[in-house]
């Protein structure tokens, strides 16, 4: 085989491999979207759809929208709290030197190492324990879910802000200080704008982690306060209905839209660089 020939073959194999993996990753999403437009009056699922219709979109149960609203509230709260917790943590981790820093960093990352099921049960036990003391049981309440989701999602904010801070040149801040800016003003006017892409990205990952969580919500939710993903989980286990596909499609486009908006705001580089939770 000539040199040119082997290169072409290699390129083709590579392209085929990449295409295959992307097909594998995206096939379930494509199928959900496609099957949601199937208009047939039947209880099994059809892909490709045999006749196009928005039939199932009109049949989405109102309590699914209720669960969706709940998940949005919990997800946004958890993302905001993750930022309040994560941005100072990242600043401390990147900018100070002290003995045992590695241990502290590992502590902040610990929620990623604990299986989510274990986080769910252990927060359930914690809420019962604390409830016996103060008389307020956080189980089945929105604050209880928000706190547990913040614990679950904060490493993503810490990871993405740390990634940005490590590339930040502290001389910029020193310049502002030497020109007479107060420390707070230097931080707010120089540092904060630079790390904002990391904060936005981390907040979005935190939101999506909270929104997509099933195990923690299964333990901490209640019949009247059941987050969206946990509700879908229950419906898939016990009571399947094709209108699930319709709302799942809305979620897929919602998530893609969110990531697209973020990409417009912070740029693709920032999105990718701090991806994966650090």
């Amino acid at each position: 085989m000539t040199r040119f020939g082997s290169r072409t073959v290699r390129g083709l194999v590579g392209a085929a491999w990449v295409t295959g993996v992307y097909l594998f990753l995206f096939a379930p999403l494509v199928v959900v979207v496609g099957a949601s437009f199937d208009g047939g009056e039947r209880t099994f699922l059809n892909f490709p759809p045999s006749d196009l219709s928005l039939h199932w979109y009109g049949r989405i149960a109102p309590d699914l929208f209720h669960a969706l609203g709940l998940s949005l509230i919990i997800g946004i709260s958890a993302a905001l709290l993750s930022c309040l917790l994560g941005v100072p943590a990242a600043l401390g981790l990147v900018r100070s030197q002290f003995p045992g820093k590695g241990v502290v960093a590992a502590l902040f990352r610990a929620p990623l190492q604990i299986p989510a099921v274990v986080i769910g049960v252990s927060f359930l036990k914690l809420y019962y324990f604390v409830g016996d003391w103060i008389g307020f049981y956080a189980v089945g309440s929105i604050p209880g879910l928000v706190v547990a989701h913040t614990f679950l999602a904060s490493p993503y904010v810490i990871g993405s802000v740390t990634a940005v801070l490590q590339r930040f040149n502290t001389r910029l801040e020193e310049a502002a200080l030497s020109l007479g800016a107060s420390r707070w003003r230097a931080f707010r006017r120089v540092t904060l704008p630079v790390i904002m892409p990391g904060v936005f990205t981390g907040a979005m990952y935190a939101f999506l982690v909270s929104f997509g969580d099933v195990p923690v919500s299964l333990f901490l939710g209640a019949a009247e306060a059941q987050p969206f993903a946990a509700k879908i989980f229950h419906l898939m286990e016990f009571d399947f209905d094709p209108s699930l596909l319709a709302i799942a499609t809305l979620i897929i486009f919602g998530s893609l839209g969110l990531i697209y908006l973020l990409q417009r705001a912070v740029g693709m580089e920032a999105l990718v660089r701090s991806g994966g939770g650090g």
Binding site: V18, Y22, L25, F26, A27, P28, L29, V30, V31, V32, A35, L45, F47, Y205, L208, V209, F211, G212, V214, A229, I232, F233, M236, L244, L245, A248, I251, I252, S255, L256, I259, Q263, M268, E269, L271, V272, G275, G276
Partner: peptide, 25 residues
């Protein structure tokens, strides 16, 4: 970058929906 962004997007869509798709497939 577009290919990587697609991976990011796919990673953060909740697994419940991916499993739903797998069941249909």
């Amino acid at each position: 970058l577009l290919l990587i962004a697609a991976i990011v997007a796919a990673s953060f869509i909740t697994i419940v929906i991916k499993v739903l798709g797998l069941i249909i497939i």
